[in-house]
């Protein structure tokens, strides 16, 4: 796991500076922003990272920020740190995509653990993204074939089911292996499942 990129949003310059310094000693890349608007202005969907958010009004700003990010197709994991008392209220109001809620002042290890969790979540997310995009490159027929392969059917069985020659199925399988970058049936299954998890998790978040 490579050190993830961290997007830090905190309105207090001193806190921004301190957290940036601390996290950089762990080799993390920290991009700090003073408020959600600045962050939204600079955020690039192609440069994924974990969000470390300190929002003055966590419920309202948090939900607003989440909606605006979602509008850009960004659902990166977030860690909330807040100086405001009622963490439970924040948690209830702003659950999806938030891996942890931390109260200020936040201890190094707690922060690192939370960010680690977020990083893993981001990796999983990226992997799913990748699988999904690879699967998306398949033609309809290829997806059909892949589906049957994943169910453990042999080439002959698939050919019989689709009323084509086994040779045609072999050609499809070769194409699929090329597009997905693997010829392992186990990889096929993992990617398919991942993409479904992604789909369902996206559904539930909406």
């Amino acid at each position: 796991m490579s050190a993830p990129r961290i997007y830090l949003v905190d309105d207090d310059a001193a806190v921004r500076q301190a957290l940036t310094l601390l996290l950089s000693t762990y080799g993390m890349t920290v991009e700090a922003f003073a408020d959600p608007e600045t962050f939204l202005a600079h955020v690039d969907p192609e440069r994924p990272g974990c969000l470390l958010l300190d929002l003055r009004m966590p419920m309202i700003s948090g939900i607003q920020l989440k909606e605006k990010l979602a509008a850009r197709g960004i659902d990166w994991p977030a860690v909330m740190i807040t100086g405001h008392g009622d963490v439970n209220a924040c948690r209830r109001a702003f659950r999806a995509g938030v891996v942890d809620f931390l109260t200020k002042p936040v201890d190094e290890q707690v922060l690192l653990d939370a960010l680690g969790t977020a990083a893993r979540a981001l990796d999983a997310l990226m992997e799913r993204r990748e699988a999904a995009s690879l699967l998306a490159s398949l033609t309809e027929r290829e997806r059909e074939v892949l589906d049957m392969v994943c169910r453990g059917w042999a080439t002959k069985e698939i050919a019989a089911a689709l009323s084509v020659s086994p040779r045609t199925i072999d050609a499809h399988r070769a194409n699929i292996a090329e597009k997905l970058g693997t010829c392992s049936v186990a990889d096929f299954v993992r990617m398919t499942l991942n993409s479904r998890v992604l789909g369902s998790s996206t559904d539930s978040a909406r």
Binding site: D12, L22, I81, V106, E108
Partner: peptide, 14 residues
């Protein structure tokens, strides 16, 4: 006090 304390803690740990 939360803000300076947060900064102090993180900075000290850094």
């Amino acid at each position: 006090l939360t803000q300076p304390l947060t900064a102090l803690l993180s900075q000290s740990q850094a």
